[in-house]
């Protein structure tokens, strides 16, 4: 009975605000903000500058909440992989329960905020995006199938659609084309990284394509997706909601993308192979950022 006092002892958390910030995956969040903003800029009419900003904040918080819940669920995987082992949960600075409460609370808040600031259609779409990323991708697909990022990529492709619907309250062809571009872009982007980090994924038991089907199949798929991505990138110009500068950028970018994918396909051994994968991975980020920046700039300065 004398140890009752000891049972109430508990250590205070050592989590700093920066750890909660890291739970939000700020780099992913910045890409989400950017693509959602482009969706808003392309929309034919806007709600109100302040409400636009609040809607964008809500979308960003929803993306951050997804990141926190993803880290809550994948803490065991993160602890094994070199790229992620210093994240707040495997690093021992934030508990899984704290991350779950943080992510869930932030999810609810972001959806309510978007509903109140913009409209409930956009809020429902944001809720769907969060659920898709956490439940469908993280909980179901990621550990079960090599198609994890192919299907799960839909979650990352939805932010411009949410941005558009936040501004307009409805759907149209343009946001769906932006969705398609990111959706087709996701597999070659992640598979280039997976080729570089396949040992990590194998150790963690994540069935990424290079781990399950080997690097050669992965290289073939990267090339195939890149060949599909180049014309997909031209769709906004072809359908008339992007101008000639975008068309030229997408054409040149698509050719370079395919050329880099071909390098990945050809160079299969040693440092040259790793360099080719690194180049494709880096260029894929530049490609997406440039196309979205150009399409937004064309609209803003038209």
């Amino acid at each position: 009975m004398t140890d009752i006092g000891l049972q109430t002892r508990s250590r205070l958390s050592l989590a700093a605000p920066a750890d909660y910030w890291a739970l939000l995956k700020p780099r992913v969040m910045s890409l989400v903000i950017f693509t959602a903003l482009v969706g808003m800029i392309l929309a034919p009419h806007r709600i109100h500058p302040i409400l636009d900003a609040v809607a964008l904040l809500a979308i960003a918080l929803g993306a951050g909440a997804s990141g926190a819940l993803n880290q809550w669920w994948d803490a065991d995987i993160d602890a094994v992989m070199s790229r992620t082992r210093n994240r707040p949960i495997p690093g021992g600075r934030v508990t899984r329960d704290e991350a779950f409460a943080f992510g869930t609370g932030l999810s609810v808040f972001s959806v309510l905020l978007l509903g109140l600031a913009a409209n409930w259609f956009a809020a429902g779409l944001l809720a769907f995006t969060i659920l898709f990323y956490v439940v469908v991708y993280s909980m179901i697909l990621k550990r079960r199938t090599v198609e994890n990022i192919v299907i799960g990529g839909a979650a990352g492709a939805l932010p411009p659609v949410v941005g558009w619907t936040a501004a307009t309250g409805s759907l149209d062809v343009a946001p769906l084309v932006l969705f398609t571009i990111i959706f087709v872009w996701t597999p070659p982007h992640f598979w280039a990284l997976a080729l570089l980090k396949s040992d990590d994924y194998a150790r963690a038991g994540v069935p990424m394509l290079p781990v399950v089907m080997g690097p050669d199949v992965t290289r073939r798929r990267i090339l195939a997706y890149s060949l599909a991505l180049a014309p997909t990138g031209l769709l906004p110009w072809f359908l008339g909601f992007a101008g000639p500068i975008y068309g030229a950028t997408a054409a040149v970018g698509g050719i370079v993308f395919v050329a880099l994918a071909a390098m990945v396909f050809v160079r299969r051994e040693g440092p040259a192979a790793r360099l080719a994968c690194g180049r494709l991975f880096g260029f894929s980020i530049l490609w997406l950022a440039t196309l979205f920046a150009v399409i937004a700039a064309e609209r803003l300065f038209a």
């Binding site: 002892r9 205070l12 605000p17």
Partner: peptide, 22 residues
């Protein structure tokens, strides 16, 4: 002996102050 609660370390107190400010 009277039960003794946890005596927070300086690191714990510092982290708590930072969280409160945030």
């Amino acid at each position: 002996p009277p039960p003794q609660g946890h005596v927070p370390s300086e690191a714990e107190l510092s982290a708590r102050r930072a969280r409160n400010r945030a």
